[in-house]
Structures are given as structure tokens and as C-alpha cells.
């Protein structure tokens, strides 16, 4: 069985990533938790947000590395994530905010079959 990706991206979200990449250069995502705009993926210029040993790399979405804190991943790892985009005036430092759109995560649990073939995550240690 082919490796099952942990994170996917919709065509609509890819278009926004392309637009932002044109404006800001290489990009990255870090999945947020907590209040207000939490539980949403944050998009930054590559390297602007410093990841470390407390983060895991889940994979790439349209050429952008997608990270999450290790502690949060412990509660999320049984689900496949899809980066989508919605209209709306979000807050946060995520780069798409001025466009009046917001990246959004859609999720589904992996099947037992898929659990056996998940893409391994990468960590610094």
C-alpha cells in the first residue's frame, strides 16, 4: 500500500498559496491551537516562525512544509488534515489575512487500514 499523506490541500487553497508565494517568497505552515483564531493553520514566510524540537513536520502542502507542535500532534495524529480556504476576516499574523480569506483545516479520522501505512513524521530529534 502506498504511503498515506497526513496533510492534503484543496485546489482553492493552492491558488491562494501561489498568490502569497508570488508576493512573499517561500512559505510554511504551522498549525495553531488555543483561543480566538486557534485551531487554524498559520501561513508564514519560510523560516519566519522558528520551529524546533517541540514541533513535528507532517508533510508538505503545495511545496510548503506543514508543522504542528508535538504536544498538539499527540491529539491530532489519528486524523488526516486538508488545508482549505474560506472567505472571512480572520485575525492572527497569517499572511492571507489581508486578502479577506482564511486558511481552514478540514479533518477526517484515518481508517484502520490507512493507519498501517501513514507517512512518518519528521522531527529534529
Amino acid at each position: 500500500m502506498e504511503r498515506v499523506p497526513r496533510v492534503l490541500v484543496t485546489d482553492e487553497a493552492q491558488k491562494v498559496i501561489d498568490q502569497l508565494r508570488g508576493e512573499h517568497g517561500e512559505l510554511m505552515f504551522h498549525q495553531s491551537g488555543g483561543c480566538c483564531d486557534g485551531s487554524s493553520p498559520m501561513c508564514f514566510r519560510q523560516g519566519e516562525f522558528r520551529t524546533g524540537i517541540s514541533d513535528v513536520l507532517l508533510g508538505e502542502v503545495h511545496g510548503c512544509p506543514f508543522y504542528m507542535s508535538r504536544s498538539q500532534f499527540a491529539y491530532w495524529e489519528h486524523t488526516q488534515l486538508t488545508v482549505d480556504i474560506t472567505k472571512g476576516r480572520g485575525a492572527s499574523f497569517s499572511l492571507e489575512i489581508p486578502l479577506g480569506v482564511r486558511f481552514l483545516i478540514r479533518s477526517r479520522p484515518f481508517t484502520a487500514e490507512e493507519e498501517k501505512a501513514l507517512t512518518p513524521v519528521e522531527t529534529m530529534m
Binding site: 504551522h30 498549525q31 495553531s32 491551537g33 488555543g34 483561543c35 480566538c36 483564531d37 486557534g38 485551531s39 487554524s40 498559520m42 508564514f44 519566519e48 516562525f49 522558528r50 507542535s69 498538539q72 485575525a91 492572527s92 499574523f93
Partner: peptide, 13 residues
């Protein structure tokens, strides 16, 4: 700051 964890970390950085 009041908000979420990723921005909280970024602000600390």
C-alpha cells in the same frame, strides 16, 4: 497578547 498558540509563540520569538 490574547489569541492562539502559534501567534503566541511567534510573539515570544
Amino acid at each position: 497578547f490574547t489569541g492562539e498558540t502559534t501567534t503566541g509563540r511567534l510573539i515570544m520569538q
